[in-house]
């Protein structure tokens, strides 16, 4: 899987408006990694296209896709709900709302530094949404699939109306807000990667650290507690970690739905529900899937379609399929 991902990164870097041979891409990456600083005599245009335009975007696709799939895996395991992911729980919308709020506040005249305040507001939005959704769904004590997803949909609907309202206020800046609603990886810079990478690694480490506890949660909260798992603390730590990762993904790429739903779901069918393996493979798989999707919109389709639209077009029907299948199994 790791190898597949590396190959995909290189192949994707060759594709685009300008075709660049794989060997050149490899040489460029090798040169950059050796930090020699010498001018190795590459065509400056090719260098710029690969290193400044394509690679940041490719790496962002891998990291964002990986984190979203990781979050999906963990949300599904901790909420005992195979339909949960950052998007269906409304958490992505919450983060987008927080991010949009920053723009509106800037329009109104508050001097907020975007680089810092966007992720912070996005995180606040995602955490707020998470707890609203859980509070809405928890009347039903077992947090059943349907009530949880329904709460997610309700909150997401309210939030998208709120974002619409912000759009109305923000007027001139509407373009950026629409970007958050539809999701796109086109505005990525290398700076974003330096932000994403450590969060992705730390987030993954936290989730792996608790993977066995996460397995035990599958036998229910009461049974897990009798095995010495501190279920309340486990929930808090993992939900907050994943909300943070989601918020960061949204603040660089907007709302990209369903990656977190599809990838863990398919992998669970293939390799089983053991969470340590699932967390690792989902992260790789999510990165691969989003990279493929983004390469398609960037280099294959005649005009660039926002990536969030593409994943929703593929993921929506898939979601419907799982939902129907589960209904049949439970009925």
């Amino acid at each position: 899987m790791c190898l597949l991902l590396l190959v995909a990164v290189v192949v994707s870097a060759t594709m685009g408006f300008m075709q660049i041979p794989a060997t050149t891409v490899l040489q460029l990456i090798g040169h950059a990694l050796s930090f020699s600083g010498k001018d190795a005599g590459f065509d400056p245009v090719v260098t710029a296209v690969v290193m400044d335009v394509r690679l940041p975007r490719i790496l962002a696709a891998v990291l964002v896709g990986g984190m979203l799939a990781l979050c999906g895996t963990v949300f599904q395991a901790i909420l005992l709900n195979p339909l949960a992911d950052p998007y269906t729980l409304g958490i992505s919308s919450g983060a987008a709302f927080g991010a949009s709020l920053v723009i509106v506040l800037q329009v109104v005249g508050l001097a907020l530094p975007s680089a810092l305040s966007v992720p912070i507001f996005a995180f606040a939005g995602s955490i707020g949404t998470l707890f609203t959704v859980l509070a809405l769904a928890s009347e039903d004590r077992r947090l059943s699939s349907t009530s949880l997803i329904l709460s997610g949909v309700i909150v997401a609907a309210i939030l998208s109306a709120a974002i619409g309202f912000l759009k109305f206020i923000a007027d001139e800046q509407v373009g950026i807000i629409i970007f958050w609603l539809m999701g796109s990886l086109s505005g990525i810079s290398l700076q974003n990667i330096f932000f994403l990478l450590p969060v992705a690694l730390i987030g993954m480490a936290v989730c792996l650290f608790y993977s066995r506890d996460l397995n035990i949660m599958a036998t229910g909260e009461r049974a897990a507690a009798t095995l010495g798992v501190n279920t309340v603390r486990l929930r808090w730590i993992l939900l907050v970690t994943c909300s943070l990762m989601t918020a960061l993904c949204v603040s660089v790429s907007g709302i990209i739905g369903f990656v977190g739903l599809i990838v863990p779901h398919l992998l669970r069918h293939l390799i089983g529900p053991e969470n340590r393996q699932l967390i690792i493979l989902s992260t790789l798989g999510g990165g691969l899937l989003l990279l493929l999707a983004d390469t398609v919109t960037r280099a294959v389709l005649p005009a660039e379609v926002p990536i969030g639209v593409l994943t929703a077009l593929i993921g929506g029907p898939f979601f419907a399929y799982i939902f129907k299948k589960r209904q049949r199994e439970n009925g």
Binding site: A218, G220, A223, R268
Partner: peptide
């Protein structure tokens, strides 16, 4: 503890 109705989610 052995609970009354032991349920496992996901196909462990």
């Amino acid at each position: 503890l052995v609970p009354q109705d032991f349920q496992v989610r996901f196909g462990f």
